[in-house]
């Protein structure tokens, strides 16, 4: 189903608010979801997964404490929306330290969190590299504003249904090597964005319908009073 990125973005905001996410948290997720969608990933699915988990109580609407733990950081059942926002904020504090590895586990949408981290790191224009190892892909954000995404070779991917989805986060001054199929680099990303600019996005109609169901929670049911007076014009306003 073809959508404009504007229409898609507005739906994401409304769906997020419909589920009860604070507007400021939703705002931080829009760019990563759209970026995933443009670059050929099922961004709408990732977002819907995060919202559904929140809506059904399978994840918690709280920020994890990512600073006061040792090497292994367990996010528990924290919503990917809050994990992504909290982790992206910490990037501004030069977290994680160079040479340190942080594990974020238990998120229902590791790809959403990974994309958010990669894009946030790019916006910060840091001099070091950030490597984000998700179950199926590796994202690397570097000093030249380039984001590289590599699909891990099958033997390195996390089997589906195998349990917790872990994100490994680390920073280095020099670049990372990562074996696998390059899904996104500077050239590919520009091409994807050009296609989106010219043709829009493709999204799953089923997921769009489910996101719309979330966004419809923001609509106020019709009433006679609202119909007559809410818009300031008569029901049949004509010249």
């Amino acid at each position: 189903m073809r959508q404009s990125s504007t229409e898609f973005g507005q739906l994401l905001v409304k769906a997020g608010r419909g589920v009860g996410l604070p507007l400021g948290v939703v705002e931080d997720l829009i760019d990563p979801v759209i970026w995933l969608q443009i670059c050929g990933f099922p961004g709408e699915y990732e977002f819907h997964t995060a919202l559904s988990a929140l809506d059904e109580g399978r994840s918690e609407a709280r920020f994890p404490d990512l600073l006061n733990t040792d090497r292994l950081t367990t996010s528990g059942s924290v919503s990917a929306a809050y994990l992504a926002t909290g982790a992206c904020d910490l990037l501004q504090l030069d977290w994680p330290e160079v040479g340190e590895e942080v594990l974020l586990s238990g998120t229902e949408s590791p790809r959403l969190v990974s994309a958010a981290l990669a894009l946030s790191h790019r916006l910060l224009r840091r001099e070091h590299f950030l490597k984000i190892v998700a179950p199926d892909e590796v994202f690397i954000s570097g000093p030249g504003a380039e984001i590289i995404c590599v699909r891990k070779e099958p033997q390195h991917q996390t089997p589906s249904g195998s349990g917790e989805k872990v994100i490994r986060l680390s920073t280095e001054h020099s670049g990372f090597d990562s074996a696998g199929t390059v899904l996104i680099d500077r050239v590919k990303e520009e091409r994807f964005f050009e296609v989106c600019r010219l043709k829009g996005l493709c999204a799953s109609p089923d997921i769009i319908a489910q996101l719309k169901a979330f966004s419809d929670r923001l609509l106020v049911p019709e009433s006679e009073h609202s119909l007559k007076f809410g818009a300031g014009a008569g029901i049949v306003d004509s010249d």
Binding site: R2, Q3, S4, S5, T6, E7, C196, R197, L198, G200
Partner: peptide, 10 residues
């Protein structure tokens, strides 16, 4: 971009 028309980015 409303209602699926072209994005402003075009």
């Amino acid at each position: 971009g409303k209602f699926g028309i072209s994005d402003r980015s075009r």
